[in-house]
Amino acid sequence: MSDKVLTANRLSDGISVWLDASGQWVENLQDAFVARHAEAVAALEASGKAAVADNKVVDVNVIEIEEKDGVLRPLRLRERIRAEGPTIDYAPGYRGLLGPFEAA
C-alpha cells in the first residue's frame, strides 16, 4: 500500500488543506498526518466524513503520496500542483513552495 494523506478545500476560502495528526486542517502538505496502513486510512476516511458533516471543508479526498528524503510528494501531478501551487509565476507575491502568497 502506498502512503496516504487526507486533503480537502477549506470551506470559507477554498484553500487546499491537509489533515494533521492533531485533527487540524493545515495549509502545508509537509505537516500532514501520513497513514501507512489500512486502519490508519480508515481513520482518515472517518475524519473526512466528520469534517464534511462539520462544514469545515469540502471536496475531501484520500490521496496517495510518497516520502523521499523526508519530503512528502503526492503521486498524481494534479495533487502535486494542489500541494505545491500553480507551476507558473502568476503574480508578484507568489512564492510557490517558499510559503503562502503575500500581497506585493
Binding site: 478545500n9 476560502d13 477554498g14 484553500i15 487546499s16 469540502v58 471536496d59 494534479r78 500542483i81 494542489r82 501551487g85 500553480p86
Partner: peptide, 11 residues
C-alpha cells in the same frame, strides 16, 4: 448560479 466554482487551489 452565482458564478462561484471550486477549483484546485481555491474558489
Amino acid at each position: 448560479m452565482n458564478g462561484v466554482y471550486l477549483q484546485l487551489h481555491a474558489y
